[in-house]
Write a protein that binds this DNA or RNA. Structure first.
Lengths: 189, 189
DNA sequence: CGATGATACTCAAGAAAGTGACTAATCATA
DNA sequence: TATGATTAGTCACTTTCTTGAGTATCATCG
């Protein structure tokens, strides 16, 4: 019962189709909640059935028709109530960290390659987030935007995503460097 | 098929009981993989059935008997193979971020309280990780340990956990400060 | 003109994860 | 001498997530 709230939060402020929502969950929202398109369509159906969102059909000439969803008052109330409940600690799942945990017992070369790949991926995300942040704040400085901007929720979560990916990149690079150095040392033994 | 590898990785180097493993998943391993005790017991049973770990009964006088598990050669091979496959991008799930995403539409007071609580929690984790890191490296400096230490996998993942929680703490504090300032501004309107 | 890719979804099956309740012994403490 | 905490697990049930395939239209590129 939590994807539910992530979807509601993503739908606040803008009407989206399932397809657009899936895109959003692929870039921005993915920082704090990950979901596949199929889950989103299913969740949208449930939310509509429960009256927390309403959908309207939009007929399109050049593309398949779509349904745009927006949060109802009941949906807002649900989110409000959700916010009032205690937050569970965040749960992370990362294959790569599992592999690094076993670093002393597995093939170092593979691990280094995967750390490098992840660092590159993180760098891409960093650049994306920096662009997103800039788009959101427009001409204002960050400080000014955070004080006086209208919609700062997505900005704040994006800031967390940025810091997270910077942490990822730095850690991947450092870990890869450490493993490389140890490899070199061992060869030189 | 992923908790499987997290359990194997946690069991490398040390023989643990299900109960001890659950503790490990509550502190260190939780940084990159979260699981409840019930899941771990179930996974241990599966791993043993598949011959990736072996358990031995340890009779105890003062406490209930326990079963200690260790990774078999087949288990090591499985981990090795797992490392060779491409890592999926990490998946995060965080209630609190969902709430912040909706920050402009929900009760700010609650949110600030939860951010403060999370910052405190993160601070506790930071201190725990710093202690763990110190224990692992003993008298060596970090640099020396990473170059010449025997078992650096858990150290590296702990470093990531530390950075993650520092990021959490900083972001929570900043977000809470921003929301407080806006609250004050609005009152002053 | 055919291939590829984007838009916009749907369905079904199976694997994984989460929830809640429960047993049973010992130890500390008030 | 009850009370609760800690150690050490088990069972059953439900929800959620992932995987894989499939439908249909239009736009673009070579």
């Amino acid at each position: 019962m939590a994807l539910r709230h992530a979807v509601l939060a993503a739908l606040l402020g803008e009407e989206l189709s399932g397809y657009q929502l899936a895109k959003a969950f692929d870039v921005g929202v993915a920082n704090f909640w990950h979901a596949l398109p199929q889950q989103l369509y299913a969740e949208l159906a449930r939310l509509e059935k429960d009256g927390l969102i309403t959908g309207r059909e939009v007929v399109q000439d050049t593309r398949p028709n779509k349904r745009l969803f927006q949060v109802t008052d009941a949906g807002s109330a649900e989110l409000e109530q959700f916010t009032a409940t205690a937050a569970k600690p965040s749960s992370i799942r990362d294959d790569l960290l599992v592999k690094v945990q076993a670093a002393d017992h597995v093939d170092t070369g593979q691990l280094i390659a995967q750390l490098a790949e992840r660092a590159t991926f993180a760098q891409g995300k960093i650049e994306l987030f920096e662009r997103l942040l800039h788009t959101m704040r427009g001409d204002s400085t960050e400080e000014h935007f955070l004080r006086h901007g209208e919609r700062i929720g997505p900005y704040l979560t994006c800031l967390r995503g940025l810091a997270f990916e910077q942490g990822n990149r730095d850690w991947c690079e450092r870990s890869a460097a450490v493993l490389r150095e140890r490899q070199a040392t061992r060869v030189g033994d």
